[in-house]
Amino acid sequence: MDKMQSLNAFSALSQETRLDAVRLLITAGTDGMAAGEISDALGVKQNTMSANLSVLAHAGLIRFVREGRSIRYFADYDGLKGLLGFLMQDCCGGHKDLCQPFIDQVMCGC
Rank of each mutant, 00 (worst) to 15 (best):
D2N: 15
K3D: 14
M4N: 14
Q5C: 04
Q5A: 14
L7R: 04
N8L: 14
A9E: 00
F10Y: 11
S11R: 09
A12R: 03
L13D: 01
L13V: 02
S14W: 06
S14R: 15
Q15N: 10
E16D: 10
T17N: 13
D20Y: 07
D20A: 15
A21K: 00
A21G: 04
L24R: 03
L25F: 00
L25D: 00
I26T: 07
T27M: 12
A28E: 02
T30L: 15
T30S: 13
D31Q: 08
G32S: 01
G32T: 01
M33N: 05
M33K: 11
A34L: 11
A34Q: 08
A35S: 10
G36S: 11
G36P: 01
E37L: 05
E37S: 09
I38L: 04
I38K: 00
I38E: 01
D40L: 13
D40R: 14
A41D: 09
L42G: 09
L42I: 01
V44D: 03
V44P: 02
K45S: 08
K45A: 13
Q46T: 13
Q46P: 00
N47Y: 00
N47T: 13
T48A: 11
M49G: 02
S50L: 04
S50F: 00
S50N: 10
S50R: 08
A51Y: 03
A51K: 04
N52K: 12
N52A: 10
S54T: 14
S54F: 04
S54A: 12
V55N: 06
L56H: 08
A57R: 15
A59E: 05
G60A: 10
L61H: 08
I62H: 02
I62G: 07
F64N: 11
V65N: 14
V65H: 12
R66K: 12
R66M: 07
R66V: 09
G68T: 00
S70G: 06
S70N: 15
I71Y: 10
F74M: 04
D76K: 02
D76C: 01
Y77H: 13
D78I: 08
D78W: 10
G79N: 05
G79V: 03
G82C: 07
L83I: 06
L83H: 08
L84C: 09
G85E: 00
G85C: 02
L87P: 00
L87V: 09
D90W: 00
G93C: 09
H95Y: 07
K96D: 13
K96C: 11
L98N: 10
C99H: 03
C99Y: 02
Q100A: 10
P101S: 04
P101E: 06
P101H: 03
F102T: 15
I103T: 09
I103E: 15
Q105E: 15
M107T: 14
G109Y: 01
C110M: 12
